[in-house]
Design a protein around this nucleic acid. Sequence first.
DNA 1: ACCGTGACGGCAATCGTTTTCCTAGTTTCC
DNA 2: GGAAACTAGGAAAACGATTGCCGTCACGGT
Lengths: 343, 343
Amino acid sequence: MGKLERHATIADVAALAGVSVGTASKALNGRGSLREETRMRVREAARQLSFEANAGARSLHSGRTYTVGMITTDTIGRFSIPVLMGAEDALGAGEMSVFLCDGRDDPIREQYYVKTLLSRRVDGMIVTGRRTEARAPIGANLPVPVVYAFISSADPGDCSVVPDEAGGARKAVEHLLAVGRTRIAHITGPEHHNSARVRAAAATERLAEDGLSLVAPPLFGGWSEVWGRQAVGILLAGRTEFDAVFCGSDQIARGVCDALRAAGRRVPQDVALIGFDNWDVMTEACQPPLTSIDLDLEGLGRSAAQMLLAAINGSPSPGRHAHPCRLVVRESTVRESTTVPLP
Amino acid sequence: MGKLERHATIADVAALAGVSVGTASKALNGRGSLREETRMRVREAARQLSFEANAGARSLHSGRTYTVGMITTDTIGRFSIPVLMGAEDALGAGEMSVFLCDGRDDPIREQYYVKTLLSRRVDGMIVTGRRTEARAPIGANLPVPVVYAFISSADPGDCSVVPDEAGGARKAVEHLLAVGRTRIAHITGPEHHNSARVRAAAATERLAEDGLSLVAPPLFGGWSEVWGRQAVGILLAGRTEFDAVFCGSDQIARGVCDALRAAGRRVPQDVALIGFDNWDVMTEACQPPLTSIDLDLEGLGRSAAQMLLAAINGSPSPGRHAHPCRLVVRESTVRESTTVPLP
DNA sequence: ACCGTGACGGCAATCGTTTTCCTAGTTTCC
DNA sequence: GGAAACTAGGAAAACGATTGCCGTCACGGT
């Protein structure tokens, strides 16, 4: 058989079942009062023609498309994916389909997508992507609700869901304290990056609550392994003693780990090591496997989607919502890989 | 101002411009014969109401939705993303929007998505994802064209676009030969994985064409760094001399690199090293940076999308299409990072 | 003065579905 | 036996946009 020529319409179904179009509609949607026998006959006809109601025509009538747009501002990367997947999952459960739009960090392209999505009458939009700072709102007075996920909108009235990075950094420090370390160093990304500043500040603050401080000012650099290795050199040259390093990313941590080993320091016996992001590629390849802070991006995406659904149904949640991070303990902080309960 | 209450319809525009609905439509679409003054008046009214034509209503009339569905079978991963982005890019250029569906390797979910997409009257579908083997077609006698990207359909009549892995492996071997290596080892993923077998076979075959063979049978294992390190141990224990290693993945290559360095062998002086996938995270973190084979997944996605567009317009390209791989030379095979032209 | 001819725009059908109203039977009950 | 009360299903009006077909002007030519 070749491929089917044309989609069956409800008129085809009605004709085959020997009823009127309206009756067929009622039969398929369980509306109106029909004899069970009629209902079955229509259903059978629909099955036979593999009829699927035209969603476009349907939404023309209902005013809702059960569709949302997802715009990623930067090109889709390691961070956007889980957010995207979490959102897709939550929306799928609400019978919503997702339009994917890759903004590629181009405002023109982005505005084009907004217009396209509006013309497609999406019920709402999710904006995601990575940025060092909050981003300008995607549009003013849009006729549909918008939720910013991972990234946050510069307008505090907009609904943004972002990871609780400060909380994550505090958890990291608390874990190091819990395993008995007090001389902690911090190696992280570039200072102009908001995440780096926030995490460093939170770590410092948490230590201060226990009357402690970092053994040296935070080492700002890049997010890479290379920087991790370099930073260890700086740290060792400074002759400051340290028994733990809190890293701003797993890549940095891995570089740190390699450099420490090369310098003859054992992880975790001499130095406990904790990363950030819980990126499996790094945490698993690290020797030993790396303890890290998980941003729970998939959960964040899911949560953002749920807020969007709520907003669509008339209950918006304006403002900035911090999504909690999770500590994942591996062997770079404790000998056995048993989970250490937090205080 | 609060958010706009409702989307403007063409009737609103017509009323504001003082013309009939049909005239408004003609004015906005450049059809019919209208006075320039009228046209401007309508356009101005549309602008004022920020009118965007309802795409659903429009496609009801035209029969086309300018929409395609993209189904990823496994959960979206490192390989699917570039394919997805390439496709999205090519489709966007054709004014098409993309529905994203994450099949999560669940056939039920997948079938649900196919139904949903059909009810949304997509003009076509792209199926992507990673599998060890060809996959069962997503549906029989679908009323819209389907293109498989990266993954391939078990039905040889379906249009599949897949990387030319054999060609890539041959390029890798050719490069090693070109830089003067003849004692080549091959470390790769699990033997049950089709890619591992194909690449190993192609490498062997290419060597045979020069009257050579691998210094040892291919070492099948996993795709991980850990396996790369282990495999070097096996290789060294075997006392076979080798001056190059062709690895089945960049992760393996990185493990190999670390283990070689630990064993006192210099890369590339003693051993030239080439990976597969050209995954920036690995190639850049590797010391020295890793030469690799790029699958050009983004190009592959773009190409798949173009075939889909062609199929939608009535010119299908049935069958399996191999998308060429690219050699990317870095310092793990040549001292200077200058590009070496291929023979 | 009359007809022909463009130019301009309105009218209405159409796409596929849902939903409201209505009509024609069939019961039911007094 | 006849009116009321249901029941089953049909007819038609939406929903928003496009488009083919017509009517109505104004103008020019004979």
